[in-house]
Design a protein around this nucleic acid. Structure first.
Lengths: 236, 236
DNA sequence: CAGTGGTCTAGACCACGGC
DNA sequence: CCGTGGTCTAGACCACTGG
């Protein structure tokens, strides 16, 4: 593990352990350098990561402060770590509806930039929160990248398996969404009525080398889901 | 303007001017260092900004590549620069419905961390795209920060005025949203029907020093709006 | 193994906040 | 004015990619 990653994690733990909240001050740069016995740039790099993640903000001439937020019960839209993190106080479970090796739909093939005769793993899951349907998810994993999946892996954290088990390096993801009216079949999964509102989200996940490997479609139950994002305002 | 900011902008222009698309290669680090006559770290910093913004991705041992994305007509959810950027090919206009100095609602006061007797500018606007209602927005600006607003400023870009006119430094923003059924009054603004789907978004904007100064509530017309985000996957 | 990006250092100097 | 974070440099060394 890289120094700056370790420092970033240690600082997150420090904030957690000391129950620091928005506006609370962290030690100054100089002290952090001494504490971790690294150069200024390394601390800066660690802080930058936490800044991008929305954990802290830095004010020149003043100090380093905890950002956090949190409205309870909101899902972090950008966390692909499933819902374990954002909703850890709630009970989230997952029903596996389907797991198979298939040829992709035209849509999936297009979003993964593959031919329609290349094989993919198709995973369909229904996620529940405190027993209520939270969302239906369909995922298409390139089989050339994700060579093997089984029921157990899928029922736990797929991404953890990919990065730790298969040693894949996840890079970036493109996320698209819109709001619409649920079709009858969709509504049934979510325990809602036809034409009720639904949030439709599509995500294309890429490896660090830029290759798309997972196309995912999720429909959220509007009664169970609220989202948050912590953004930074870079170049105007 | 800082060197790395200038470089980042120049590289964006370079991509634009040469119509580079996803996967196209940029010059290597060494050449960029020579071209811009700066040290490696400065180039790295510029590239990092573009990486966070979703403009490029870097692959160790291989090169620097254009990321971009491929869907037209989607709104960048994280761009507070209004819709000019994402939808520049479409005609976006804005009707001012109300502009007044008032005491904040309880909700606005809470989100801005102020008392209910402190004054705020209240701005209500209806945005249209190609003549169709796109969203209704209500904003509350702390008067202690934004001392003056008028009809002309509001009809153009408020944030441009804040950063260039008032020289305020925008820092970060917290974004919350959910999906719901439109109330009758809301639906009328958007030319929709009661109980049609709506995307409800709230944003709290902060200065670089961490002070909240703008609380904004937007309801989007589901027929006119689709969104995208380009995310990076940092620490697992 | 050559090419290319990533990490880390030590240090100079700058810019902003707040007393 | 002092304390604090931000920018920038030059350079050593590491780690991954791809022929």
């Amino acid at each position: 593990m890289l120094k700056y990653q370790k420092i970033a994690m240690d600082l997150e733990d420090y904030i957690e352990d000391n129950s620091l909240v928005r506006g609370d001050k962290l030690p100054i740069l100089d002290d952090l350098m001494k504490e971790f016995e690294v150069s200024k740039s390394t601390i800066t790099k660690a802080l930058e990561i936490l800044e991008v993640k929305g954990t802290i903000y830095q004010v020149r001439g003043s100090g380093i402060f905890v950002r956090g937020h949190r409205r309870k019960g909101y899902i972090n839209l950008l966390s692909n770590q499933g819902f374990r993190q954002s909703l850890r106080e709630f009970k989230v479970t997952s029903d596996l509806l389907e797991l198979a090796v298939i040829n992709p739909t035209k849509e999936a093939a297009h979003n993964l930039s593959i031919e329609m005769d290349e094989e993919v793993y198709y995973v369909k899951r229904l996620r529940k929160i405190q027993g209520q349907p939270l969302c239906v998810e369909e995922s298409y994993f390139k089989k050339s990248v994700v060579a093997y999946l089984n029921e157990q892996i899928v029922s736990e954290s797929i991404f953890k398996y990919l990065s730790e088990g298969l040693n894949l390096k996840i890079g970036f993801s493109d996320l698209f969404f819109h709001v619409g009216k649920l079709k009858k079949e969709e509504a049934e999964y979510l325990d809602l009525k036809e034409n009720d509102p639904g949030l439709y989200k599509e995500t294309i996940f890429h490896l660090a080398n830029g290759e798309a490997f997972d196309f995912s479609k999720i429909i959220y139950n509007y009664e169970q889901s609220q989202f948050y994002i912590q953004a930074n305002n870079y170049l105007p």
